[in-house]
Design a protein around this nucleic acid. Structure first.
Lengths: 164, 164
DNA sequence: CTTGACCCTAAAGTTAACTTGAATGTTAAG
DNA sequence: CTTAACATTCAAGTTAACTTTAGGGTCAAG
């Protein structure tokens, strides 16, 4: 299988597949005499596994450790351990998210409660201090979350437009 | 208040505070004749709010839109709307995480069930296909999550070490 | 009046996970 | 035989959110 076909079947770009190979994540590839890469059918399974693992929150570095890329010898124990750690991680994250949501919902109620009547700045200050009061989310020492960006997109270079 | 003190009180680095100013996030700052920045006490509240919002998963771009940085005029409606969207985002993410965890737990059980007896490669293949079978996580069109990296740390330059 | 702690700016570096670009080779079709 | 669609490499660009570095000023203490 050529890279183009593998790309189509897996819904990854060729460049991405080459990239995975370049970082040692995808070693299941041979070269034809002309230099073209050629992949066995298992490669499809493997890169889909990689993509799936990414969706589940694994970094490529973690995936490299997890999946010895050749399907033949992966270490049972390391794998289990890592998976278990990851479940713990997810559980912790779920707790954090629940906290965040609780906080946000409280904040919304708080803001809605005041029909724009009273002084806006005063209201702001009140809301801010409320927000800070229960700003006791456990610090993310162990990693980080980013959710759903792309909201306040700024067109040009941020520094430049901000220097305005 | 000088930047150093603000930094200490907020537990952010001075460079980070300057950075926030440089991207137009923190406009609450004056200059003393010597060029030193000087902050009113409210600045502490504000940057703590920024940090809190980040912990809750807001990007700096989103925060810029949310918090007009002067405490005096923020738009009630935009704010509410954004907060609500964020709650929805978090809910969606929670669903995704629950899915991920369920999948991982199933996978762990699956692996544990086979005492390393049977062929390792066969086992691997079985586990992989199981993983791929329920690899139906909703695609993250709307954003992305990263959890808890720093596991499979590779020392030197990744490209370089992989080229080995 | 010097030393150390603090402040300034502008530019470049960092990390992850890719993408894009430039320059070039290969192959299948008409 | 040419052309389009594919393939290759290597280097550089992208984004977010900062940090680091280089090269200087400023200030309080002794």
């Amino acid at each position: 299988m050529n890279i183009g076909e593998l790309a189509k079947r897996s819904n990854l770009t060729p460049s991405r597949i080459r990239f995975y190979e370049s970082i040692g994540l995808l070693k299941m590839v041979e070269r034809r005499p002309n230099g073209y890469r050629t992949y066995p059918p298992e490669a499809l399974v493997l890169i889909e596994l990689i993509a799936t693992a990414q969706k589940a929150g694994f970094s490529l570095d973690e995936i490299r450790v997890l999946v010895p890329t050749d399907l033949e010898n992966w270490q049972h124990d390391t794998l289990l351990e890592t998976l278990q750690r990851k479940v713990a991680d997810i559980t912790a994250l779920e707790a954090r998210l629940a906290q965040s949501r609780k906080q946000l919902v409280a904040l919304i109620k708080d803001i809605e409660a005041k029909p724009g009547d009273i002084d806006c700045a005063e209201n702001a200050r009140r809301v801010l201090s409320r927000m800070l009061d229960n700003a006791d989310l456990p610090d993310m020492d162990a990693g980080d979350v980013k959710l759903l960006g792309k909201a306040g997109r700024v067109r040009a270079n941020r520094r430049k437009s901000a220097a305005n």
